[in-house]
Design a binder for these strands. Structure first.
Lengths: 344, 344
DNA sequence: TTGAAAGCGCTACCAG
DNA sequence: CTGGTAGCGCTTTCAA
């Protein structure tokens, strides 16, 4: 609870020098800085947040709006919240929570009361009410996800279409001619913004590569293991040998269980790739290649964009897509083996 | 972005009168107040958060520390975060997120920088590092959960022991002589603070009521449906006719599935009560009586205690237990029927 | 019932 | 490279 003037006195310098030494906004002699830092340490000094907000141009707080929708996958959501918090702290920012019933009124409130410097929008819906708000308030807003109407907004997301395309490429390169995809529950293709993009990438690119392709959801609203195994069976019966999964951990397990029950092994009989997964795939019955959705990457970029929006030349509006990365764990027929198989 | 002096001018009063009219800390003539309120509305005035923090004695922010532990049940955790946020907003407070890697350093930081007025501690572990911190910092801290060492702390929680005792009473009153409990995974009895309390309430009270009783976990670390069904089977084979469940939704389903597969119906053959559940039990195969853990109740109380800790006479340290409430859905043999059964 | 004015603790401008 | 100081926009004491 020491104040800046005590630090100044202890270090034998002026208040402003202490301020500049701490913010780094003005050069300070090495020895002066050393004395100040020692005084700070000895007094356990921390600038008062309110004073900093009032005097400075920054509050050092970002709002994080998260609607707690029913179809939200809780573990994934938590991973994003954690990632956002870590990203923010890396730039000396804190996260203020704005939950559903407050998401709209709250965004306006924290913006016009000057409580936060910017807003991060999580769990974006195709028709998201927060889009209109982002256009009204006068602080930068970054969407982690892409709403249908994103004109003039800054959005960050994994390039889902490129991710599925990449997966399709791997399967095609592995000489698979008939591929399938097991997606989310049917309702997710209406309520969420990215499942349709994964599906589109799969279907468009499979068509481009001239592959026969089939798509299955995991049920109407909630996916049950039996529905998943049924869907898997249907795909296999249709001659599918390459499988693309965009689903929860449980679905992955169910798919692998169905394969096992048919005495099919990965990748000998069936190749499997997981797309946009946020969980650990190494503890599954069989390790599976994946093109992960990494919350930290999205959130780091989002925070970076929010911070840059506060500066002199802010980043332009638009969709900032994150390039997919492929993690090989041996669950796909390698091109080499495929060539041999064809040759023999 | 209007400021208080603009409001004052528009309403034809002084700045201080505006301030008092809004805070209610001093009587203001009805017509004066009306003019001020109109000016506030017309200008869409919101007090500047930084100025309010600096000048006033309150920041109107509570920190919420949440370690994202691996064994945390994500949906339950999210329910608590949401409830905490709602409770805080009801008292014009915002929630600042403090995540794991920051939980300790962060608590100290937000306390000594005057960013928050108090701290709410979520997902409390038996040996929680935040206990030591709570004792160091000079702002009120309220634990939602009870750590082993809780001397001098303010803790809020459901009275888990009373909850299981209540459940045991219902089963005993339903003329059950042999009862069983299916709890969480074995590891939860080491890492979490409340599973042991539920178990203790069950065993102690069953003993008091002179009932034969058996306890089962749902596996070592993670619970699988098959492990749950096996545990259920073992209890049934031991002659159990009354079942107490302290587990996730999936476990409830698995238990009901096992009963169904044995052609046992609820409550005719087996009575079932769920204790400390946070999810919706009405969509299960059979509706089940429960003694719920209601996040909103805990969080409302926690916020209330935190607020009162800021006042003149703060609440005393101690454990504030919330009395359990029983929700009847017909899954337990009523005392009446039991009497008849005995009579016939 | 109301007003005037002194800070709250910092940041950043203006001087040197 | 460093110091002095004018605010930032409120809350609250003192005075009327």
């Amino acid at each position: 609870m020491a104040k800046i003037d005590e630090v100044a006195r202890a270090a034998g310098v002026s208040i402003s020098t202490v301020s500049y030494a701490l913010s780094g906004k003005r050069p300070v002699a090495a020895d002066t800085r050393a004395r100040i830092e020692q005084a700070v340490r000895e007094l356990d000094y921390r600038p008062n947040a309110g004073a900093r907000m009032l005097a400075g141009s920054r509050t050092h707080i970002f709002a994080l709006t998260e609607p707690f929708r029913l179809d939200t996958h809780a573990p994934t959501h938590m991973a994003f919240v954690l990632a956002a918090s870590i990203a923010a702290r890396q730039s000396d920012y804190d996260i203020l929570l704005l939950t559903d019933e407050e998401a709209s009124a709250g965004m306006r409130r924290v913006a016009s009361s000057g409580l936060v410097d910017g807003v991060l929008v999580l769990d974006v819906a195709p028709a998201d009410e927060r889009v209109a708000l982002a256009r009204q308030i006068d602080i930068p807003t970054v969407f982690i996800g892409v709403p249908d109407d994103h004109d003039g907004l800054i959005c960050v997301d994994l390039d889902f279409e490129a991710a599925s395309a990449l997966a399709v490429d791997r399967l095609a390169d592995g000489a698979h001619r008939t591929i399938g995809m097991i997606g989310q529950s049917a309702i997710a293709y209406e309520n969420s913004n990215f499942p349709p993009r994964v599906r589109r990438g799969f279907e468009d690119h499979a068509r481009e590569r001239g592959l026969e392709h089939h798509f299955r959801t995991t049920g109407q609203v909630r996916s049950s293991a039996s529905a998943v195994r049924r869907a898997t069976g249907e795909l296999l019966d249709a001659g599918v040998t390459g499988l693309l999964l965009h689903a929860s951990e449980e679905v992955h397990s169910a798919v692998l269980a169905e394969l096992a029950s048919r005495d099919l092994s990965v990748p000998r009989d069936v190749s499997v790739i997981s797309v946009a997964s946020t969980f650990d795939l190494t503890s599954l019955a069989a390790p599976i290649d994946d093109i992960p959705l990494v919350p930290q990457t999205s959130c780091d970029l989002a925070v970076d964009l929010a911070l840059r929006s506060l500066e002199a030349d802010p980043p332009s509006a638009g969709i900032y897509l994150i390039a997919p990365t492929y993690r090989d764990r041996g669950s796909v027929t390698p091109p080499h083996a495929a060539v041999e198989a064809v040759a023999s």
